[in-house]
Simulated assay, not measured.
Amino acid sequence: MKQATLLLVLVVFSLLPACQHSSTPEKESMVLIPAGEFQLGMPVSDNIPAFMSDRTSSANAQPMQNMHLDAFYIDRFEVTYADFLAFKPSARYAEGRANHPVRGISWHEADAYCLWSGKRLPTEFEWEKAARGEDGRLFVWGNELDKSKANFGKTPQPVGSVKGDVSVYGVQDMNGNVSEWTASWYQPYPKSWHKDANFGENFKVIRGGAYNKREHGFMEQFAMVPYRNVAPPTMRTWNTGFRCAQSVGKTESGNPG
């Protein structure tokens, strides 16, 4: 009888880590971003190229301001093809890209994947804080563009392979590789004077620089982490992927963590 009781206790204790793991973000796969203020937005500049539209002008990311966010978790790496195929086994992609960031994913597919995994898409404010920290830097490494520190080349790279592209919190590939969907609709910032007919609930915000297929089209401004790009949630583009986030203390189904 004693032996049977001891065996039962051992079985229960052996299962505890697995039970806890189901509601707690993995330390290796997610990063905790602490609560507190950070500097949101772009500094005011009159140097806006004439060809830029309201949707592509950095005026939509002004004024620069302090913003407080609660603590949250965010994926250390962009979601890969291998990750996405676990969610959608019927999807087909070229071989040899299992550890590359999945791309050509609509916002709806990205949102569905995050919810399936017990997470959610980050808001654009969460994404920006995770990328730039609290000191208002324009790139994850500082205020000067250095193309060697992120993947701004002609092809995507495996996640985490460019060692310079890591934020102060340890989140990787936020400045290059692929741009990323966020949960946020394209809306004006608090205290903004900028007018844009596209504001509303027609476009989702995309964040982060990306690799570039074309020789032309790369601009320093597009690579700045506070820069806002937008697209309809149904659109699939060759340079856009995503990563997930999670609120502290609960899974995104609303259950306590």
Rank of each mutant, 00 (worst) to 15 (best):
N151Y: 06
S161A: 11
H100C: 09
A130N: 02
W185S: 07
N177F: 06
P158I: 07
M174G: 01
L138S: 15
Q187R: 12
N99I: 08
G104I: 14
A150R: 00
Q187A: 12
C114A: 14
Q157M: 06
I105K: 00
G118H: 04
K147L: 12
A150C: 12
V171M: 10
G176E: 02
F139E: 00
F125T: 01
K147D: 05
R103K: 12
P190T: 10
V168P: 01
E180F: 01
H108Q: 08
E128L: 01
G209I: 02
K204I: 10
K149W: 07
K147A: 11
V171S: 01
A110R: 01
D146L: 08
V171L: 08
V171W: 06
K195A: 13
D165P: 15
V205C: 10
K191C: 04
I206N: 06
W116F: 13
R132W: 01
L121R: 08
S184R: 03
V162K: 01
G118N: 05
G200V: 13
H100R: 04
A131H: 00
A150S: 09
D135W: 01
R132M: 02
A131R: 00
E201P: 07
N99E: 10
G136V: 04
G133F: 03
V140Q: 01
G104C: 14
A197S: 10
C114T: 14
W141E: 09
E180P: 06
A131I: 00
E124W: 14
V166N: 05
V205Q: 09
V205T: 10
G209E: 03
Y189K: 04
E126I: 14
K147H: 06
L115H: 14
K149N: 08
L121K: 07
P156L: 05
G136A: 07
A210P: 05
F125C: 01
S161L: 13
G160D: 08
G133N: 05
Y169P: 00
R103M: 08
W181Q: 02
T123N: 03
D111N: 15
Y169S: 02
F125P: 00
W141H: 11
G136P: 09
W193P: 09
G208E: 03
F152E: 03
D196T: 15
G133H: 04
W107R: 02
P190G: 12
T155P: 08
G153K: 10
N175A: 15
H194L: 04
G164S: 10
A183I: 09
G200T: 08
R132G: 02
K119N: 05
H194V: 11
E180T: 12
H100M: 11
Q172M: 15
V205F: 12
F199C: 05
A112L: 08
R207C: 11
F203C: 12
H108N: 05
W127P: 00
E109L: 14
